[in-house]
Design a protein around this nucleic acid. Structure first.
Length: 293
DNA sequence: TTTAATTGTAGTC
DNA sequence: GACTACAATTAAA
């Protein structure tokens, strides 16, 4: 229970970046939710308690786009464009990776190892997972790592750290969890700093899930930066065209969000559908990538 | 816009 | 094992 108390303490201003996202999140929420009666920047600023100019600046610094441009970047039209051009690159690319091995997957150089639940249960029963909370451009990030590589990445709103932790530990109940910020910290820098994406040393991740989920995730890893695919595209890619619904479920179960670019999967009509850690965050990621590209 | 068809998971019995 | 509810869907009426 002591640990609990520690988590529930709302960390108000962990870092500048952390609180920035909180502000940005609210802005995105407002302009996307009430797109019908498009609140002006002034209205939003007033609501949040900041001056319009200040807000404008903050937002642009964060996303690389003005709020207006950002809004446009997450519209259906834009998503459609990401989908449409260049035919079907996803389907062309063949798997050059077996179950495990290095690969140039999207723009992050990632090596992934697959582990089935059975394997996990047998071998991973006593496995230790180190975790830690770190600030990220999308709020507080919960990072989990085994000695073989990154195994989980989740997000938490401020004060909700406990929820995220529960959500992740529930997936692999047999593991031992130890808080160890020092061990997880390096991953954060690597993942959220785009300048470090191209690097000679691959990022090592460990995928834990069923066979089907693994195929889905590997498929997602092939989506290039700034592109998007539909759930049925993925379903096609793994050879089960009618399983789009199941693909959705598998995508949602992805334990390493962001690294596995689940935010690049959209519905067929271009709309952004659900997201485990909040639709707003999905929009934020997509917009963020658009801005930096 | 509502509806029916669909598939892999996880939980229950 | 079988059965059921559920999920980031989709195509069709």
């Amino acid at each position: 229970m002591n640990a609990l108390a520690q988590f529930s303490t709302p960390a108000i201003d962990v870092t500048p970046e952390g609180s920035d996202y909180e502000t940005v999140r609210r802005v995105i929420e407002m302009i996307t939710l009430d797109y019908r009666d498009q609140p002006s920047l002034e209205t939003i600023a007033a609501e949040i308690g900041q001056s319009p100019t200040q807000l404008q600046k903050l937002f642009t610094r964060w996303a690389g786009l003005s709020p207006k441009a950002f809004l446009q970047a997450v519209t259906i039209d834009h998503a459609k464009r990401l989908l449409g051009t260049e035919g079907l690159p996803l389907l062309e690319t063949s798997y050059e990776v077996g179950l495990s091995g290095p690969g140039r997957l999207h723009d992050l150089f990632v090596t992934h190892e697959a582990m089935s639940p059975g394997e996990w249960k047998a071998k991973g029963g006593g496995l230790m997972i180190r975790y830690g909370f770190h600030p990220s451009p999308f709020g507080l990030a919960l990072v989990m790592a085994t000695d073989r590589g990154l195994s989980g990445l989740a997000f938490a709103d401020e004060g909700r750290e406990r929820e995220a932790l529960d959500d992740m530990t529930r997936r692999w109940p047999n593991a031992t969890y130890v808080e160890d910020k020092a061990a997880t910290e390096p991953y954060v820098g690597r993942v959220f700093d785009r300048s470090k994406w191209l690097c000679d040393r691959p990022l090592r991740v460990v995928l834990i899930g069923t066979d089907f989920q693994m195929r889905v995730w590997q498929s997602l890893l092939k989506i290039p930066y700034g592109k998007a695919v539909t759930y049925s595209d993925v379903a096609n890619d793994i050879g089960q065209p009618s399983a789009s619904r199941a693909v959705g479920a598998a995508v949602g179960a992805n334990p390493i969000s962001f690294v596995v670019p689940c935010h690049r999967a959209v519905a067929k009509n271009g709309a952004l559908t659900g997201y485990h850690w909040g639709l707003t965050r999905k929009r934020a990621m997509l917009g963020w990538e658009t801005g930096g590209a």
